[in-house]
Amino acid sequence: MGVIIERLSYFQYPFVRYALIVGVLVALSASLLGVPLVLKRYSFIGDGLSHVAFGAIAIATVLNLSNNLLLVAPVTILFAVLLLRIGQNAKIKGDAAIAMLAVGSLAVGYLLMNAFSVSSNLSGDVCTTLFGSTSILTLDRFDVYLCLWMSAAVLVLFLLFYNKIFAVTFDEDFARATGIRANFYNLLIAVVTAVIIVLAMKLVGSLLISALVVFPALTAMRIFTSFKSVMICAAFVAVSCAALGMLAAIVAGTPVGATIVTANIAAFGVFSLLGLLFRKKA
């Protein structure tokens, strides 16, 4: 009991509250993006990118960069564009190429960290990169503000391009036939995915980030059948799961990323059940 009260007292620090806000915002952005990604069968981009980001972090660590985002963000964005190209090209076996790239980045990243790292706590470093901060308190101030601004930018982009994103997601050929620059929006989606993955990595780690992208969308689709309602529900699910997950993580002292993802799995289970009941009645 005493431990819990002590942990609850963390909330008196404004910094912890900021971290909570950031977590929620990142989860929100990831979930919005998740809807078109899942519907366009592009979720592989999120998955592939998270592995690439791990490799990039490893390189940044080895190079001993003061701020690794400066390397990780451009590299991840570059690979987002590349993965999109691979995914659209029917000639190359897309999924196999992406699997190779993903596993390759993981292996090389781990190898580099092992061979060159100066850190005294190597396995701790690797674990944090893969599964996220064990405690929310390890986020630094720069990360918090960066996340805040980037999430805000993603939300604004989504509002501005909502109708176009719907059109390009539902029927790319029709959208292009009526003059919508579909390639631009596909690129936008890929780049924003890269940005969100880089941001969310601190929170949930590279292996769990796809969950933030994919779960809320799939959860919402269990019940809702219009694009707008799926978007709204996914956002709602993501925000609730992130908030609950982080609170639970702080109170119970569990790892943040894993707790949020577990909350998402629970939500998916509940919505699936509700969906089944719904459908049977209808």
Binding site: L39, F170, F224, F227
Partner: peptide
């Protein structure tokens, strides 16, 4: 695809 009729027509 989750989309309502009016969403599609409007697009």
């Amino acid at each position: 695809f989750p989309a309502s009729v009016s969403e599609i027509v409007l697009s």
